[in-house]
Nucleic acid binder design. Sequence first.
DNA 1: GGAATATGTTAGCGGCTGAAAGAAGAAACC
DNA 2: GGTTTCTTCTTTCAGCCGCTAACATATTCC
Lengths: 252, 252
Amino acid sequence: MLAAERRNLILEKVHEEKKVIVSELSKEFDVSEETIRRDLDKLEEDGHVIKSYGGAVLNEKGSIDLPFNVRWRSNTQGKQKIAELISEEIEDGDHIILDASTTAVFIAKNIKQKRHLTVITNSIEILLELSDVSGWDIIATGGLLKAGSMSLLGKKAADSISSYHVDKAFLSCKGIDLEKGITDGNDETGGVKQNMIAAADKVYLAVDSSKFGKKALSKICGLSEVDVIVTDEKPDGAWMDAFQRMGIDFLV
Amino acid sequence: MLAAERRNLILEKVHEEKKVIVSELSKEFDVSEETIRRDLDKLEEDGHVIKSYGGAVLNEKGSIDLPFNVRWRSNTQGKQKIAELISEEIEDGDHIILDASTTAVFIAKNIKQKRHLTVITNSIEILLELSDVSGWDIIATGGLLKAGSMSLLGKKAADSISSYHVDKAFLSCKGIDLEKGITDGNDETGGVKQNMIAAADKVYLAVDSSKFGKKALSKICGLSEVDVIVTDEKPDGAWMDAFQRMGIDFLV
DNA sequence: GGAATATGTTAGCGGCTGAAAGAAGAAACC
DNA sequence: GGTTTCTTCTTTCAGCCGCTAACATATTCC
């Protein structure tokens, strides 16, 4: 039994029964009580449960479950790194745009202690994540909810973005190529992201290293429209040269 | 029974009955009165209740802080009943509006097996709940996310609704009064709900029985604009007469 | 092989609870 | 109003049991 597997089962149980008891879980999974406590620590960190003497209870606030496909995420450390870098770029009072990507969700988690931000996003997950901060303006684009995507897309979404203007936009993409520029999986996200770029003074592209040299279906924009690229690992020299030539800053 | 679990149940009870008695709780949970007092101390510290000789009463002020959790907990059976009734009113292919209320979340849960619905909503929770159904059009209004409310409000939200037209709108409210009509807690939700009413052929008001005769701050509309009232318990005769006179249908 | 992660073990600490006693409050009575 | 009586509250203490922290061991990943 994997640790993550066990934690998922605990999470399931706490959803079903509203509470779990350390001693019971210890027997059920045949591990020590300390291990269970550590599991509960993790689950509490993530906001799923609230520990209590002898066990833990469901955290109603954080317990709204995300659909299954959202739960499993790849390269979380890389995305967390990127998010921390970006967090340093955001100042109190900034007006920013976050797109609908897992990286952007990490960014949202990392900037909650800042003050008086204005955030525009089309990501349901980010809205959820930020629903408990106070003193911010959080603006949701309207739009169509695409099944399983957790993001608002379509003409309405794109239009509503173009009525705003922000300091910084933080986007991600599926592919980044010297020739084809920035590309993404489908046209609908493309249109929204184009407007996000147009609405921002400074455009940050948050991509993990695997995206370099990839080309996806739909072109969002040329590389030159990006101001800063934030990533977790340096690509090889040719890329760096190209970025320098285009005046693109680079954060690792 | 975990301590936190017991405190949650006490909190639930104090919300339902507005007050709790130390001696009763002591018997109910089979713990000493001292333990109950310590629980109430904690709840008072957190601002949920106000202790008083022999027991404690609900702190209305403090419960505004967590409107979400609390509304969620109260009278779930009633809301489920209402949701089931409403589910029968919705047909495959319908275009509907759901507002941002716990009752509406229950409705969303209850209609997931229907086909080809078009749902317009300003509730983050409903978007989340419906994010895994396929073959529907789910439209989110844009707007400002109000801290802790999980709903999209403000001018943008209201405006985006007025560009649609639907078959049925399902709303709830804080108070329903023969003279003052339908009222809600604040102006922002009011504006959005007014536009929802205007956008629908048929307006359903989903309220649990406690709302009859209550008046809240902000008027949404007169009773006559409502077509159907759905509730879990029949109010007394005078109400029924009034509804009949106004041509309002009634579902229990 | 070494770093990172997961798990178990142990010892000492600290929270939860109930009991008891005295203080404070409420209520009834004069 | 004052006294009495009863109830409830606060405080303190002790026992129990779960918790934390630190270390040891095992496993996985690079």
